[in-house]
């Protein structure tokens, strides 16, 4: 589904990703862990198409296509979804309008009939239940005045509405209490199918108790320095990131 080959990325002339290789197959869950500043969000944003990150070499193939050639909106419509680490507030853009527009853009792309307001609302209410979303949140502007936890839930709520093929969750667990974490994990698991895949970016192993990965990668200083099964997450939790740092000569 996704193949990243020897990817180098810079921002403002500073090299951040230094040769990433990654292969994600349908049905898989990959966890990417690593200390702060190692480049996890950069990788996630490059996949979503953020322009300020400059790919200096390497390639990304998504479903047989050169992903780097696609605009962010086209990537989204082809099934890539980024749950942002820091979802931005957009005062004045009502949540409902935003969600309806996004869903209908996806439907149009797939050649399906656009939802009417009524149809959309009905569908939205169902997904709200799945994530135990407070209905009043969808009456506000996008993310405006949402708590940290509500913002994260809102990301997964959008994922539930858009049903991507490849979900990339960037630190979706940070800022969530244990109940919210369980709800979010439940939401993510409920959306799983044998055809779609998830990349979970996280700092802690906690979330991985609920969303169990097939592969765990450690990203450090712009490189994947370790890849293994889910046991790697536990090992990391035990030994801490200093272990990785020492192994990599810091």
């Amino acid at each position: 589904m996704l193949t990243i080959k020897d990817l180098y990325v810079s921002v403002e002339g500073k090299e951040i990703l230094k040769g990433i290789n990654l292969e994600v197959k349908p049905g898989e869950i990959h966890a990417i862990m690593g200390p702060n500043g190692s480049g996890k969000s950069t990788l996630a944003n490059v996949l979503a198409g953020k322009e300020e990150f400059e790919v200096t070499s390497g390639e990304i193939i998504y479903e047989g296509e050169d992903l780097l050639e696609l605009e962010p909106e086209d990537r989204a419509k082809k099934g890539i979804f980024l749950s942002f680490q820091y979802p931005v507030e957009i005062p004045g853009v009502p949540m409902v309008n935003f969600l309806k527009t996004a869903v209908n853009e996806h439907r149009k792309f797939r050649g399906e009939k656009e939802f009417t307001a009524g149809e959309f609302l009905k569908m939205m209410r169902q997904k709200e239940q799945l994530l135990d979303m407070n209905a009043h949140l969808t009456n506000r502007s996008v993310n405006e005045g949402f708590s940290g936890g509500e913002k994260k839930k809102n990301e997964i709520f959008q994922m539930a509405l858009l049903q991507p093929k490849l979900g990339i969750l960037d630190e979706t667990d940070s800022g969530l209490d244990i109940d919210a974490l369980k709800t979010v994990a439940h939401g993510v698991n409920a959306l799983r199918t044998p055809e779609n895949a998830t990349i979970v970016v996280t700092h802690y192993q906690r979330l991985l108790e609920y969303i169990v990965p097939d592969h765990v990668h450690v990203l450090y200083n712009g490189k994947i320095v370790k890849s293994s099964g889910k046991e790697l997450a536990l090992e990391l939790e035990e030994k801490g990131y200093d272990w990785i740092k020492q192994e990599n000569g810091v």
Binding site: G49, E71, E73, F81, E89, I90, V93, F98, A102, H106
Partner: peptide, 24 residues
Amino acid sequence: EALFYLRARGIDDKKARLMMMNAF
């Protein structure tokens, strides 16, 4: 940043800008 957020949800650049201007 807001523009990117909207585009990352499948809303094209032109429409996303329009949404932001209306919001303004």
